[in-house]
Structure formats: structure tokens, C-alpha cells
Design a protein around this nucleic acid. Structure first.
Lengths: 190, 190, 190, 190
DNA sequence: TTATAAGCGAGACGGTACGTCACGTCTTCAT
DNA sequence: ATGAAGACGTGACGTACCGTCTCGCTTATAA
């Protein structure tokens, strides 16, 4: 329960802040998310927040990293097409319908205005996420389901790119048909 | 510079505001863009801004719509592959390296936090943009360069989605090879 | 109602702040007097206070100068002893029992910690007050009730000094007998 | 430096706090005197201060009582006029030019805002100080240098009052001539 | 000669108020 | 009627200290 400093930081306060930030984001949206509001909701002093987090996006970041990243880990059943359809469906649901996805969207949006946040997202999220995304294809290559010379990075982008695009950029709906056709056209036709 | 009169709104003030907003966004980023700053830079009263624009994103929106949308109109030379590569290259440059693209990124980011802005972007930008994007493929269908039963909407998403994804979401570089491979895999292999 | 700047400062807000500061000082004491409290009581924005007054002592100062200084102007009936007893009695009451006196005590106390305030009190209060105090004696000299060579400044200090001393320093009571004896010993015995 | 034990408080810490408070008051003034600052300067934990002193004025009070009160004990050579002039000169120096006097002025100022401190000053300082001040006159009465019926309390106030008034209230200079004239007029003319 | 407990340095905590920034509204005056 | 100027009420910012609260270390007795 204690660490680092002599007797250290309150884990209770830390978790209260993360949950309060999460809740308030989902309830009111990022525009109305204030450090004072988080402090009040968490029953914590504002100074305690500023002591440990440089800004409110850092709070969201920690909340995101803590409990959200594994929501979008691809499955591995050995059936590439089925795995992809499952995964992209879960990804669509994460991006458009989950609380963790709301945090992700807010962070991605803010990273357009904040290069430091953008860098942190790249280093602490995308590095790992791209590895996880590739693995699905890598295993298919190893099984012989995909040609060995395929540029896996580009294939990953061709699979997930259209989903992020619809969810974050144009706001179009992501239907089952769209996902199915996307996977079929990208993989099967190869 | 005083232009108060009884014959309607000052075009001079309008343009000064749009350019000031544009410049300040590019110079300082969205986070430091304030209505007061725009007013000062434009040599205009704050009230004049609030009289004509509900919020600072509306200023950016007008600046974007006014002089930016045509930057990303697809060409039409009759050679589908070449046109697509040209277009996607221009799109990548727009998204990552142009002033108008900076405004677009800021608006897209804010639209994550602001449903009204999201709706306005859909109605006043994406509706037209998707039509323009489809036309390129539609003409290819008419020429017989693409099969008639193709789901053009999905193909559009498969072409531009990965670009927006890299530019706005992961921040990865968009190389010529990436664009070429993307077009080849999406169109030629069909 | 308007002055200086183009259309200017709100007299209503100014008075509300002065009265709120006065009231809160008397009710709660200086230690609990906060700018936020004054703003709330006055129904005024904190920024409005900071726009016009550098600190809360400046508010009190303005309240003091505005409506308090003339409470301690010496009378002039031609009877020196009687005038002095009347005046010193009023002064004692001002110092120990009046709202204006509470403001004066607070300002004098703060001036011990704040050289700028001390200088302002000297220039804007004591300069005039000492002139008023001397006039009483000066007129007595002119009437021949006091010897012409008397050092009036020192006599003023010998008369009012013990009162301020008791009221502000030791907190002793100031009785009628004390005042009478003080005047008798200082003036009559001369 | 650790001095924890089971037999009471650390004299070292106590003195470090008193000296730190004294020094910081003289260096920065009362307004910038904080418990945290004292703790840091003294190399002592904040809690150690709060364990032994209810507030920062109590620290100053202890510093004042410890090493300052005897600076203003009247002399006794048998020559009343000379003793008074000596004493009032020392008092003036104490009030306007000594470090102990700075502490005294700060405490007196704060006592305007803090009735508990005012009461403590009366009981622990003024009670004794007034006795010491009277004694000078009392001995003169016993020697026959002053009439037996004189109201010694009032005479004390008439002698020291004008000095405190100038030093603490109006900020006027206290010259040798002023002191001499004050004593002459109060004592000799009697 | 060991254990025990008081005093200590350290510093995190919930708070209050600070002084600043920008918001969006308003009123005035000049054009 | 419009625009430039700018004061206003509002609300959040990030900081400074407040006074309280553990924590783990040091040390002088008392078992």
C-alpha cells in the first residue's frame, strides 16, 4: 500500500480520481470535464490531483491505460477470417459504444491539439497495439493462411483504418455487413 | 478601419476575423486559440465576433469551408489508378502538411467533444466530400474499369480510411509506397 | 455616472464593494476578511475587485477615506479646555466603539506589515489629520489662551498620543477622568 | 540532529524555530511569515511546530518574551529626569530600530485582529511592563521628587503614550528634542 | 541489553483563498 | 445599424499555505 516516498501516496485517492474522471467524462463529455469537478466527485483536494497529474488528460490517460487497452486485443482461434470479423466487431463496439472508448476518443481528439499527448499515445498505446494487431496476421502467415511476402503493416491499416475513420472522423455507422465485406475484400480475395 | 454603417455587415471585419483565426490556430495551436486573441489580432471588437459566430469553432468552420474544401477534390484523367494515387497523395499532404489541414484536424478533434459540431461537419462537409470521392469510382464504373456491382461506399472507405487513420489517429507517416500499395491492393487486385 | 474610460466603471459595483468590505470587517474581523467574501457579499465578480483595487486593504482604505475621516475633526467653540475634552472623548469613542474606528484599527495594524500602506496612511490621512489637530491649538494661541512659543506639534502628541496608546496598544479603558486629567495636566498647568 | 527520545521535547528544535521565526520576520516581514517557511528554515518538521505552538503568533510571542522584554526596563540612578530621558530614548530605539521591536510591532498589529493574542499580550506583557514603568515614578515619589498624590498611571501614559503613538501609529520620527521636551513638560513643570 | 515509546523529519492529505484568464453579455459612443 | 472599446458576472485555472494525519527513524530509559 505504500511505495516510493517514505510512506507515500494514497492509493485510495488515486483510484477515486481515476474513477471520477472516467465517470464525469462519460456523463458530461470532455468539454465539461474540469479538475475541480473531478476533485469534488472524488472527494479529494485539487492539490492532490495537481501533485500527481500534470493535467486532466494525464488523468484520462492513466484511466485508459489502466483498464482499457486489453478490451481490444485480437482473438486467436486459428480461423483468420472469423477472428478478424470478431475482432473488428469488438473494435467497432469499443470505439462507438463503450466507456473506455469514450476516453480513447477524447484522448485522441486532444492529441490533435497537444503534441506531448500525441507522443505519449504513440509510445504507450500504439506501439503495443500495433504489435497485437500484427500478431493476428503473423500467426496466419505462420499457418500458411497468408502469403509470406505480405506487408502486414499495410494490411493492418487497411483493416482497422476504415473503422477508425468511420468511428472518429465521419461518424458513419459501422454495420456487420461493412465489417464482413472489409475483411473479405482485404483477405480472401488475396 | 472603422466601418460601422447602416448597410449591413462589414466584409472587411469578417475576413479579418477568419484570417486571424486561421493564423493563430497555425501559430499557437487550438488550445491557445481564444476569442479575445482573435478579436485583438483582427482589430475587431469581441462583440462583433459574437454577433456573427456562435463560437470559435464556427469561425474555424467558416474558414475551412471558405477556402479549404476544394483542396481535396479528386482529379479525373480517365486513368483510375493514377488518379487515385494522385488524389491520395494530395489528401495526405492536406492532412499532415497544410494550414487548411490544421483547421480540419482541429475541427475533427473538437467534434469528438461537441455533437453539434460533429453534425455540422457531417452535413456541410462530409455529405459533399463523400459524393466527390465516389464520383471518381463512379466514372470508372461507367468506363468499365470497375465492376458494376462494386460497393463504392465501402471502396471509398477502404481507400481513404487508412490515410485518415494514419494522419489523425496513430500519427504514422504516409509514404508514397504506402499509398501505391493501398491503391494497388484495393483496385487492381479486384 | 460614467467617466475616464469610454463608458466606464460601475459606481454601483464600487459602492457595493466598499459597503460589503466595511460590513464584513465589523462582523468577522480582519482575519476573516477575504476578497472572495467581499465579492460574494457585494454581488460582484472577483475580477471586478481586482480590476480596481490592488488588495483588500486598498478597499478598506477607500472606505475609510470616503466616510470616516471627518468623524474626528476637532470642534471650535472658543473654550480650549472644553473643546479638547469634547474632542478627545469623541476620538476615544471613534477608536474603541465605532465601525469607522474598526476600519482605522485594521488599517493601522496592517500598516505595521506593509510599508506601502503605511506611506499611504501618512500621506492621505495623517497629513490632514495633524493639520486639523494643530488648528485647535493654533486658534487658542491666536486668542492668547496658549503661549505663542509653544511647540504645538509636541502638544498635539502629548494630548492624542496617550489615547491612541491606550486604545491601540495596551487596550486599557479610556475613562472621562483620564481624558480630563490629561487635558488639565497638559494645558492648564502650562 | 535527531533528538527523539522519551523525555520530552528537543530544546534544539525549540530554539531553531524561535530563531527562524525571528529571522524571517525581520527579513521578509510578517505578511510573508509562514509556518512552512519557519519549519524549512529551522530544519524542523511542520508537525513539530504545531505540537508546541498553536499558531505562528505564539512562536513570535515566545521569541518576544524570551529575549526582548528586558530591553525596555527603566534604569534607576536616582535622577528622575535623566532616568526618564534615558529610558524613553531606549524605548524609542526599541520600537523603531531593534529586531525585538519588530517582533513587538508585529504582535501588537496582529492583536488588533486577534482578541486572544490581545489578551495574552495584556496579561503576559503589559501587566509586568506597566509595573516596571510605574516603579521609576514610584521611587521618585518615595524620594520626594514627585508629589505623593500624583496619578502615576496617567503620568506613565503621558510619558510613553506619545512615543508609541509616533512609532506605531503615525510613523513620525522620535527625536532627542522631542523626548527631552516631553519629559520636561510632564515632570519638571509639575 | 533489549523493547518500548515519545519526539522527531518528512511529506501526503482535504481544504480555503489567492490572483489570473477567458468566457459570453452588456452598454456607450462614433461612424 | 454596425462596429470598436471595454466593464461586467461567471467559472475554472494552477499555486500557496493551512492544520491534520501517518510513517519510519532515533534514542533514553525501564524491564
Amino acid at each position: 500500500m505504500h511505495r516510493g516516498n517514505r510512506h507515500g501516496r494514497s492509493e485510495q485517492a488515486r483510484l477515486a480520481v481515476l474513477h471520477a474522471a472516467d465517470d464525469l467524462l462519460v456523463e458530461n463529455g470532455f468539454a465539461r470535464l474540469t479538475v475541480e469537478g473531478i476533485a469534488q466527485r472524488a472527494g479529494v483536494a485539487k492539490q492532490t490531483i495537481y501533485r500527481w497529474w500534470p493535467s486532466k488528460t494525464d488523468i484520462l490517460f492513466e484511466a485508459f491505460v489502466t483498464d482499457a487497452a486489453e478490451e481490444i486485443t485480437p482473438p486467436d482461434t486459428g480461423d483468420l477470417t472469423r477472428d478478424l470479423i470478431t475482432y473488428l466487431g469488438a473494435l467497432a463496439r469499443f470505439l462507438t459504444a463503450s466507456d473506455a472508448g469514450a476516453v480513447f476518443r477524447a484522448l485522441t481528439a486532444e492529441s490533435q491539439h497537444d503534441p506531448a499527448l500525441a507522443a505519449r499515445l504513440r509510445q504507450e498505446h500504439w506501439t503495443g497495439q500495433r504489435v497485437r494487431d500484427r500478431q493476428l496476421l503473423q500467426r496466419a502467415v505462420e499457418r500458411g493462411d497468408l502469403p509470406a511476402m505480405a506487408d502486414l503493416d499495410t494490411i493492418v491499416d487497411r483493416l482497422v483504418g476504415p473503422l477508425y475513420y468511420r468511428a472518429l472522423v465521419t461518424g458513419q455507422e459501422i454495420t456487420t455487413e461493412f465489417v464482413t465485406e472489409l475483411v473479405r475484400a482485404t483477405i480472401d480475395a488475396k
